[in-house]
Amino acid sequence: MIRVEHLTKRYGATTAIEDVSFEVPKGQVVGFLGPNGAGKSTTMRILTGSLGATEGRATVDGRDVFTDAREVKRRIGYLPEVPPLYPNMVVRDYVAFAGQLKGVKDPVAAAERAIARVGLAQVGHRIIEHLSKGYRQRVGLAQALVHDPEVLILDEPNSGLDPAQRVEIRDLLHDLVEDKRTIILSTHVLADIEAICRRVIIINKGRIVAEDDIERLGGEQRTVTVAVARPGDAAIAAMRAVEGVSAVVDEGEGRLRLTTDGDRREHVANAAAPFGLLELSGRARLEEIYLRLTMGATP
């Protein structure tokens, strides 16, 4: 669905992204991950046609985003980092206007649908300026959804929101995932990515440093952390004896960090039970990889 080949964008002397290539198949939800200034927004803006690339090419549904921009834009719903709102407009009018621009047949009806979809029905008649930030973010989402696009590109849809709003937006995104749309989602919140995305692309300093299914990211090697009530050599030995565990590190306070190949959590749990298993987690893995890849930190 989306194919990016050797994309480079330079702002004068600074290089925002360099030689970025990736591919997103139809219906997949991809997380776009990277520190501030990594080039996430730049890549997304190039894909949506609001920015030109210095070099390279990108296609959506087989159409070039530069030469066939109109067709590409028709297929994409885009929520930029800062939602592109007209603060003076009434929500309903604004979304309908967006619908008109996207070439929707019946913009008013489409706007109503999109507004309902993002849970704005009660504030449809209000002026955008007077809405809370969370609601404004939803208006931005409604704008991206109004023409029912095949591809959604969302640039940090939940940045700057309070935790409650963030969860609501996440649930909203979750619903969108069910629609079998192709989605690229950038965020700093790893939990969101884990909750929503199947795949993740990690970008750092303008280059892609990792791109894989979340499950497979970082190869077969994984880290599982167990906390047991009665640590000791026996426990360590028992862990070592589990099939697929290659290394065990005692982190103190009853915590053992195991390096495994593949998902061995069940076996580890079984083996740890006799020692009073308190906690078992493999969750921090993405963050770990992320930090490793983006900051050069070693595990």
Partner: peptide, 14 residues
């Protein structure tokens, strides 16, 4: 300023 221009630039219009 409001970034609303991005809506125009990313819509299928010339």
């Amino acid at each position: 300023k409001t970034r609303a221009l991005e809506l125009l630039l990313t819509s299928p219009i010339t």
